[in-house]
Write a protein that binds this DNA or RNA. Structure first.
Lengths: 151, 151
DNA sequence: CCTACAAGCTCTAGCGACTAGAGGATCAAG
DNA sequence: CTTGATCCTCTAGTCGCTAGAGCTTGTAGG
């Protein structure tokens, strides 16, 4: 009926220290303890932890999960807020994708233009040194040392 | 000829505390100081800081930038290592994109399936509660409370 | 009943790349 | 010479864990 944190860990696929961390930040309840102060859990906690894990895998932040959990405890309420949270997160993910795709394009251009010669002519280094070469190639970054200060 | 950290900050588009942080972690040199211990920089530092900023914008980690800077100081060396670093980073970016697109798909499905009714029937909550509903929809998550423990 | 020892406990510190703030010194312009 | 913007160092906080020290507890076998 009740079980230890290690069992809970295996059942929900969340590491033991992470469960304790979730308790600390208020995602998981403070469970009852044995006489020796060891935590005892039940099936409800497995469900809750699965919910948390899945939400984390989808990239929801701990604050958002706290809200989602609070809302899910009110099944009669309108789910407009839940929807809003999920949409906002979706928008963030889409923004990250957009930015990463721009990065990928830039990195691809850098590596395909690298002539595999010496560092002095390396496009990768040139593009990094001169931001102006980033979006449009206006030809001929000067070869040679970049002339940086040394750390 | 030489200028303060604030001027360097404006010229390179990097905040003052970030410049000091870069000095601390060895990306920027320890510059000469005035009698009153204030840092003085020259144009080489503007170039170096621009390089760092651009590399950060492309998502290179500080460790990678340290290596890139070291390599760029050796223009006669082969750029194979530079190339390797850039390609590895590109591969990481591509992986992140792949994962984020999977997340986006899942989130889109969640929000489009939400009927905008009560929380008890909300698909967003249901999918989060039951990982099994994630990749393939086998119909009819039971409505009602999720039955979690409370935090 | 006793002994191992796995698993639990608390507490602190570390990751990466900054950011914020306190509390004080210095520099440049008027 | 005064004002006030800028600079200095230092510590601590962010986020979501993860690692480790040093100790206690639970449980299974003998």
């Amino acid at each position: 009926m009740t079980f230890s944190i290690g069992i809970l860990s295996r059942r929900a696929g969340v590491k033991v220290p992470t469960i304790r961390y979730y308790e600390q930040v208020g995602l998981m309840p403070s469970p009852p303890r044995t006489d020796g102060q060891q935590r005892r859990y039940g099936d409800a906690e497995v469900a809750r932890l699965n919910f948390i894990r899945h939400a984390r895998e989808l990239g929801f932040e701990v604050d958002a999960i706290r809200e989602l959990l609070a809302m899910s405890a009110q099944p009669e309420e309108s789910c407009a807020e839940v929807d809003r949270l999920a949409r906002r997160h979706l928008a963030e993910v889409e923004q990250r994708i957009t930015r990463l795709i721009a990065l990928r394009t830039e990195l691809q251009r850098m590596v395909t233009e690298c002539g595999h010669g010496r560092v002095g002519e390396c496009r990768v280094i040139q593009v990094l040194a001169d931001h102006g070469e980033c979006d449009h190639d206006h030809g001929g970054g000067r070869p040679g040392s970049t002339g940086f200060a040394e750390a």
